[in-house]
Simulated assay, not measured.
Amino acid sequence: MIIATQPYYKVERIVAADSIETIIHQRSLCLYSDRIETAYREFQLAEIFDISFRDLGQGQGVLYLHTKQGVYAYPVETAAEPFITEVKRLLP
């Protein structure tokens, strides 16, 4: 059962000979009792050291997952505090 979700986005740029096309993919981080899932990754809570947020202003920010494999950044456009609070509550 999903405990909390956090929308994030991924920007894809396609470069052609005469143009650049920008595609924005809307995705979600999903918090479960034992893991966090993204569109292409799964992190066990036991492997997460911390979660943090950097406000970039104008409603933009970056959510950082600090894991045993490294730090993963997720750009967000919504408040991340409720998601961070839930994750920190479950971290070992």
Rank of each mutant, 00 (worst) to 15 (best):
M1W: 10
M1A: 15
I2K: 05
I2M: 01
A4H: 07
A4Q: 14
Q6K: 14
P7G: 05
Y8P: 00
Y9T: 00
K10G: 02
K10R: 15
V11S: 03
V11A: 02
R13H: 06
R13D: 09
I14R: 13
V15R: 10
A16I: 03
A16W: 07
A17E: 14
A17Q: 12
D18P: 00
D18F: 04
I23T: 06
I24N: 09
H25E: 09
Q26F: 11
R27W: 04
S28P: 03
L29Q: 01
C30E: 11
C30K: 14
C30L: 13
L31C: 02
Y32K: 02
Y32E: 01
S33A: 12
S33R: 10
D34M: 05
R35E: 03
I36A: 04
E37N: 14
E37R: 11
T38M: 04
A39Q: 10
E42F: 08
E42T: 13
A46K: 11
F49H: 15
F49S: 15
F49Y: 15
D50M: 13
I51F: 11
I51P: 05
F53M: 02
F53G: 06
D55R: 09
D55H: 12
D55T: 08
L56D: 11
L56M: 10
G57T: 12
G57M: 06
Q58E: 13
Q58Y: 13
Q58G: 00
G59D: 06
V62W: 00
L63P: 09
Y64C: 02
Y64G: 06
Y64E: 12
L65E: 04
L65N: 00
Q69K: 13
G70V: 08
G70Q: 07
G70K: 07
V71L: 06
V71F: 00
Y72D: 03
Y74K: 07
Y74L: 03
P75E: 08
P75Y: 05
P75H: 04
V76M: 01
V76T: 15
T78Q: 15
A79V: 05
A80K: 02
A80P: 01
P82Y: 08
T85K: 12
T85W: 07
V87H: 05
K88E: 07
R89A: 13
L90V: 11
L90Y: 06
L91G: 01
P92Y: 03
